[in-house]
Simulated assay, not measured.
Amino acid sequence: MATETTLILFKPDAVSKNLTGEVLARFQKEGFSIRGIKMMTLSDEILAEHYSHIADKPFFPSVRGFMQEAPVIALALEGEDVISRVRDLLGPTDSVAAPAGTIRGDFGFKDADAKMRNVCHASDSPEAAADEIKRFFKADEIFAY
């Protein structure tokens, strides 16, 4: 197993529903360590970069609108195989399909917005994690201990 660092974004639904503490506790219970954490409002520019793979799609304005409804909390989390393990803890992107016991299954919306209002974003690979951490954190905002 490799020690990795991943990016988690607590989406506006998690922040608005006051779920961030409970979800963070689940991550910490797994033994993951916080390397960086901050609350922020996402600009059009950062969203266009983060969602560049869908920025030209007709539904992107609704994604941008949702991600700007409330602040998000960016979290750099470190641990053994953290990328795949966090994604397993979250469950499928579609909260409707996420089983009970997963974060999205327990807290995600169960409606037409279940793929977007799904509590957290998590990096899907080491390369994506490195890029995403640089996007949301300055070098001096990531800590080792």
Score class of each variant (00 low, 15 high):
Met1Leu: 12
Met1Glu: 08
Ala2Gln: 09
Ala2Cys: 05
Thr6Gly: 11
Leu7Ser: 10
Ile8Arg: 15
Leu9Trp: 08
Lys11Ile: 15
Pro12Arg: 14
Val15Thr: 13
Asn18His: 14
Asn18Pro: 05
Leu19Gln: 10
Thr20Trp: 05
Thr20Gly: 05
Val23Ile: 05
Leu24Lys: 05
Ala25Gln: 06
Ala25Asn: 07
Arg26Tyr: 02
Gln28Gly: 08
Lys29Ala: 01
Gly31Phe: 00
Ser33Cys: 12
Ser33Ala: 14
Ser33Ile: 12
Ile34Gln: 01
Ile34Val: 05
Ile34Phe: 02
Ile34Asp: 01
Arg35Gln: 01
Gly36Asn: 06
Ile37Gln: 09
Lys38Pro: 02
Lys38Phe: 02
Met39Lys: 15
Met40Thr: 12
Leu42His: 06
Ser43Arg: 01
Asp44Pro: 11
Asp44Tyr: 01
Glu45Ser: 12
Ile46Lys: 04
Ile46Arg: 02
Glu49Lys: 15
His50Met: 04
His50Leu: 00
Ser52Thr: 04
Ala55Ile: 08
Asp56Asn: 14
Pro58Val: 12
Pro58Ile: 11
Phe60Val: 11
Phe60Lys: 03
Pro61Cys: 03
Ser62His: 13
Ser62Asp: 09
Val63Glu: 01
Val63Gly: 02
Val63Tyr: 05
Gly65Leu: 14
Gly65Asn: 14
Gly65Tyr: 09
Met67Thr: 09
Glu69Asn: 11
Glu69Ala: 14
Ala70Gly: 11
Pro71Phe: 15
Val72Ala: 14
Ile73Val: 11
Leu77Ile: 13
Gly79Met: 12
Glu80Ala: 00
Asp81Cys: 03
Val82Ile: 10
Val82Trp: 13
Val82His: 13
Ile83Met: 06
Ile83Gln: 03
Ile83Ala: 02
Arg85Ala: 11
Val86Asp: 04
Asp88Leu: 05
Leu89Ala: 07
Leu89Pro: 04
Leu90Cys: 03
Gly91Arg: 10
Pro92Arg: 14
Pro92Thr: 12
Thr93Lys: 15
Ser95Asn: 03
Val96Ile: 13
Ala97Lys: 15
Ala97Phe: 08
Ala98Arg: 01
Ala98Ser: 11
Thr102Asn: 07
Ile103Trp: 08
Arg104Leu: 05
Arg104Phe: 00
Asp106Gln: 07
Phe107Glu: 02
Gly108Ser: 09
Phe109Val: 10
Asp111Glu: 12
Ala112Asp: 13
Lys115Val: 01
Ala122Val: 00
Ser123Gly: 02
Pro126Ile: 01
Ala129Ile: 00
Ala129Asp: 04
Ala130Val: 10
Ala130Arg: 14
Asp131Ser: 13
Asp131Asn: 13
Ile133Asp: 02
Lys134His: 12
Lys134Met: 07
Phe136Met: 00
Glu141Phe: 11
Glu141Asp: 09
Ile142Ala: 08
Ile142Glu: 06
Ile142Asp: 09
Tyr145Ser: 11
Tyr145Trp: 15
Tyr145Gln: 12
Tyr145Asp: 01
